[in-house]
């Protein structure tokens, strides 16, 4: 028999090493122009192609679930529109210019990565003053991040993470084969407290930069290099094959820490009927390592701050026990 478990034990860490290497390599590439576009444009293009390309096998694999299919298409379309076309082609030049000038790592995602996943959405005026365009982006950020998202979280939990977010779009397409790798068990769930310092830092950085407390460069370096490049990029993406596709979203993302907590106050949950036989496929396929089975076995709903509403547990359940509510 081919020992697939052993193969995974060797191949997956190797793949992780390659991914981390690639991410570090591209980070250190000089800011060159190629075919009239700068590095960030090409990074965004590669990211989009990865989401679109790897979305297709996901659509095939999960074709029996309508929810999963619609959601995966949403990931692909949202990345195309919000992460690419709007930023680089569709918006007027002045609107695109401001955000591209921010030249953020890894790419500009004001349109889909809401505060505090991207803190600069609220900070544009300190860099560009109060022009119409800047106020426009500011309004967009305030309305989406501080009004629309909290309302959506109360009803649909963290569906944002699996339908629209740029990090989520990659996690749900390129990262889908690694969803079973996410850490499981009580200790893995307890470790989710790790997210708190990230939330506190994101808020502190917003206030610090916004009101000029502390050194601007220090705030920017910690945010840009440590949080975005090291944790979201090199580790968050690089460790997909070892620790699952949601390592960043589960343990480090400031948006998840802040607004994910709100989802527990909302109505969303993984409901269960009384047909559970405890096979464990739901737990295994949960990219957030949620203990669903323990509740489902007793017909109880599962309510957590970490569920991103991906629908894998519902689709994989051989007894049709679960339902997203």
């Amino acid at each position: 028999m081919v020992n697939t478990a052993l193969l995974k034990k060797i191949a997956y860490p190797l793949l992780s090493a390659v991914l981390i290497g690639l991410i570090i390599w591209q980070y250190n590439l000089p800011e060159t122009h190629w075919r009239g576009k700068d590095k960030e444009f090409w990074y965004s293009t590669a990211y989009l192609l990865l989401v679109l390309g790897m979305g297709i096998p996901v659509l095939v694999k999960w074709r029996r679930s309508r929810y999963f299919t619609v959601r995966t298409i949403s990931c692909m379309v949202m990345q195309l529109i919000f992460g690419y076309l709007l930023i680089y082609f569709l918006l007027p030049q002045s609107w695109r210019g401001v955000v591209i000038a921010m030249n953020l790592y890894p790419f500009t995602a004001f349109a889909q990565n809401f505060w505090p996943l991207e803190i600069y959405g609220l900070l544009l005026p300190i860099y560009f003053g109060f022009s119409t365009v800047v106020v426009g982006w500011l309004l967009y950020t305030v309305i989406t991040s501080l009004i629309l998202m909290p309302v959506l979280v109360l009803r649909f939990g963290r569906a944002y993470c699996s339908w629209l977010c740029a990090c989520g779009n990659l996690a749900e397409t390129f990262g889908d084969p690694f969803r079973t790798q996410s850490p499981k068990g009580r200790r893995a769930v307890k470790a989710e407290w790790m997210i708190v310092p990230f939330v506190l830092f994101a808020i502190a950085a917003t206030i610090g930069l916004g009101f000029g407390f502390g050194n601007r460069d220090t705030w920017q370096t910690i945010w840009g290099f440590w949080v975005k490049f090291i944790f979201a990029g090199a580790l968050g993406l690089g460790l997909y094959p070892v620790l699952g596709n949601r390592i960043w979203c589960r343990y480090w993302c400031p948006w998840a820490g802040l607004f994910g907590a709100l989802s527990k106050a909302g109505v969303s949950r993984i409901a269960a009927n009384n047909m559970c036989m405890g096979c464990g496929l739901c737990n295994k396929h949960c990219e957030m390592g949620i203990e669903i089975r323990g509740n489902a076995l007793h017909g109880r709903p599962t309510k957590t701050t970490s569920c991103v509403y991906c629908g894998a547990c519902v689709a994989i359940c051989p007894r049709k026990v679960l339902k997203l509510k």
């Binding site: 478990a5 036989m277 496929l281 295994k284 076995l297």
Partner: peptide, 24 residues
């Protein structure tokens, strides 16, 4: 452990640990 899940363990989808309903 869950007997109904046994087949998924045999097919390599679930490890024995995943099959267990009694942890820690």
């Amino acid at each position: 452990y869950s007997r109904p899940g046994l087949m998924y363990h045999l097919m390599g989808v679930l490890k024995e640990w995943d099959l267990r309903l009694a942890h820690e």
